[in-house]
Amino acid sequence: MIENWQHFLLPYQQAVNELKVKLRGMRKQYQDQKQHSPIEFVTGRVKPVESIKEKMVRRHVQEDRLEQDMQDIAGLRIMCQFVEDIYKVVDLLRQRSDMTILEERDYISNVKPSGYRSYHIVIEYPVQLVTGEKKILAEIQIRTLAMNFWATIEHSLNYKYKGAFPEELSARLQRAAEAAFKLDNEMSEIREEIKEAQTLFSYKKNAEQNTAGDEGHRSEEEQSESRNI
């Protein structure tokens, strides 16, 4: 029996922290090269103890098999602007040597009956502990902002109805999922226009910041000069 959950979850928290830094670093590399980043932002969490216990009961996971059979104790979420970005991120993750992909589940091409869309990747990630290396299972979910909005709402409602949605609500959620995906498709159609506009906006913003910085330096020089007179 797990007596010290904090000790048990520590390697998972380390894995989440490290992966967030690495994935956000990928986004920064694109920005430094003034290229469109397929990664909009990254979040991560370690599953709360009560959620782990509930899932163990629901999925009939034995405690001595917890590390092997529960793949999402460590969870990362990558948000993208466009559906095409999702598959670009998947390709980037496949190329990395610091993690091993164990499983991929494409719920975008193979949408769930509920309307849920996302791309899930289960990885094995090594963390370095004072006791040595420990390989941690983690799940990375990759989705658009529209997909994430729908999934967040559906997840909240799931707690209320325990997965047994009223028929009318279920139908509305499915229609909402289709509407969200239609929005994604429309944005994909004009993505080049969007990317160009974002590049121009970023360039203007950086120029304004640099100008403000120069004015600040001139002000300091002028103050110094007046003091010396």
Rank of each mutant, 00 (worst) to 15 (best):
R77H: 08
M70C: 06
E208H: 06
A151S: 15
V16C: 01
L19Y: 11
M70P: 11
I194E: 02
L10H: 11
Y161K: 04
E154N: 02
P11R: 06
L66I: 07
E104S: 02
D98R: 05
L19I: 08
V57W: 00
I101V: 14
P48V: 00
K134Y: 11
V90N: 10
T131H: 07
L76T: 05
E208T: 00
K20Q: 14
K205W: 01
A197H: 11
I39L: 09
S202I: 02
Q13A: 12
F41P: 01
L173W: 11
Q128G: 00
L93N: 12
E103T: 13
E186R: 06
I194W: 05
V89N: 09
E139T: 05
L9W: 08
A15I: 07
I78V: 15
M79K: 13
I142D: 01
E40M: 05
A15N: 12
V16G: 03
I2H: 05
S226Q: 15
L200E: 10
F82K: 07
L102W: 09
F41W: 14
T211P: 00
R58N: 01
K204S: 10
A177S: 14
R94F: 10
H7C: 06
I52G: 02
N210R: 14
V111Y: 07
K22C: 04
E193L: 14
K195D: 10
E178P: 00
Q14G: 04
R45K: 14
A15H: 08
Q29H: 14
R45V: 05
D184E: 12
E3V: 03
M1H: 11
E178Q: 13
P38V: 09
V21L: 15
E220T: 01
E54R: 14
F8W: 12
M187I: 11
E124Q: 15
I121Y: 03
I108L: 12
R27G: 07
V111I: 13
I142N: 09
G213L: 10
E225D: 13
Y30V: 04
K135R: 15
E193A: 08
A180H: 01
I123G: 07
Y116L: 00
Q81W: 15
Q174H: 12
R27F: 04
Q33H: 14
V61L: 13
K88E: 15
S188I: 07
E63Y: 01
Q14V: 12
N17L: 06
F149N: 07
E168V: 13
I39W: 07
S219N: 04
E192A: 05
L157E: 01
V21N: 10
E220M: 10
E54F: 03
G132D: 10
K22L: 13
S170P: 00
I78W: 05
L10M: 11
V46Y: 02
S226T: 11
R172W: 09
R59W: 01
L66Q: 04
Q174K: 12
A171I: 01
S219F: 11
E196I: 08
M99P: 12
G163R: 08
Y125A: 01
P113F: 04
Y107N: 03
Y159P: 00
C80F: 12
E63M: 10
F201W: 05
S114K: 02
S51F: 09
P11D: 13
Q71C: 02
A164V: 05
S118N: 09
E154H: 03
S114E: 10
K20I: 15
I136Y: 03
N158K: 15
R96Y: 04
I2A: 03
D85V: 14
Q128A: 02
R172Q: 13
H155N: 08
S202P: 01
V130A: 13
K195R: 15
